[in-house]
């Protein structure tokens, strides 16, 4: 199917871009960074084309008009890939931090490759009719807001990882060339904080939107469903991070561990929960 082929091309471009990002860690040729961004941009264009085909197919089912086609594992992974890549291009592109490619883009690749595997294991790109509860204008708002938050947190995770590496380099008393090409510890720490400070309200707004939607659909704002609970846990972990930093003044390694735990919760909320929840699970029921 055309959509699947286009998506695989996009995934290949993302992987290629990420590979360049890794090479750029060790080779200071600026062209690598430029080409990394070029490949990512090309991937996004092809991805959008595949998304366009997906939407056309999706809307052939009357109940699906005019909603975003993310009611399946593939759809969600595809959207997540786009969100992370787009966020990376905007954030790291604007700050000229191509060196961060190796730290952030693997997540986009994981999502893209996961999506490709999904199409192979189920034999399609999972275009299904929307369940009645999902046939609401919230379908076009709530998941997107949450995914943007996830993408921002994914970025922050990469920044935190770079910070840990930078710290290790400097502690070793024999910093390698990578140390001089990565941003300073202060800059990484600051960027990590700013990303999380930006993502936290987005996540919380997304959770609130989910609650309002749930209230419209089922009459209850909050039901302690696994996905709801884990998104709350994620928000609480990042709240701990923000309190540690803003009130207790924590910086550096310990604060980064908290933020990384937060992203672990993001991944669990996005994927792990599907094995637990019946309401939100892509894997539990068609």
């Amino acid at each position: 199917m055309m959509e699947s082929v286009l998506f695989q091309i996009a995934a290949a471009l993302y992987v290629a871009g990420t590979a360049l990002g890794f090479v750029f860690l060790y080779n200071r040729d600026e062209r690598l960074s430029r080409w990394m961004f070029n490949l990512l941009a090309a991937g996004v264009v092809v991805h959008l084309a595949s998304l366009g085909m997906r939407m056309k197919h999706f809307w052939e089912i009357p109940e699906n008009r005019w909603y975003l086609p993310i009611n399946s594992f593939f759809g969600a992974l595809s959207a997540m890939t786009l969100a992370i890549t787009a966020t990376f291009v905007v954030v790291e592109g604007r700050h000229r931090l191509g060196i961060m490619g190796a730290f952030v883009l693997p997540w986009a690749c994981a999502a893209a490759v996961g999506a490709v595997f999904r199409t192979h294991s189920v034999g399609s790109t999972e275009i299904h009719g929307l369940a009645p509860a999902l046939q609401s204008y919230w379908m076009n708002i709530h998941p997107m807001v949450i995914m943007i938050a996830y993408a921002i947190f994914g970025n922050a995770f990469g920044v935190g990882l770079a910070l840990l590496i930078q710290e290790r380099q400097l502690k070793s008393k024999r910093p390698q060339e990578l140390c001089y090409r990565l941003p300073s510890i202060e800059e990484l720490d600051n960027l990590n904080y700013r990303l999380i400070a930006a993502g936290f309200p987005v996540l919380t707004v997304g959770i609130i939107m989910g609650g309002i939607w749930a209230h419209e659909a089922w009459g209850r704002f909050w039901g302690w469903d696994a996905k709801e609970t884990w998104s709350l846990i994620t928000a609480l972990v990042y709240a701990v991070f923000l309190h540690q930093r803003l009130v207790a003044g924590w910086r550096g390694r310990k604060a980064v561990y908290t933020s990384m735990l937060g992203f672990a919760c993001v991944v669990f909320t996005f994927i792990g929960v599907n094995f637990l929840s019946r309401l939100h699970g892509y894997l539990s029921a068609p």
Binding site: R28, D29, Q166, L170, P175, E177, C179, Y180, L182, P183, S184, I185, E186, E187
Partner: peptide, 25 residues
């Protein structure tokens, strides 16, 4: 730019300053 011929500081003081910048920007 293409090679590392002028990369890296060659005096103790400038190395220290460069390391400081790696920590604090």
């Amino acid at each position: 730019t293409d090679t590392g011929i002028s990369a890296g500081q060659l005096s103790v003081a400038s190395v220290a300053a460069a390391l400081a910048e790696r920590i604090f920007g």
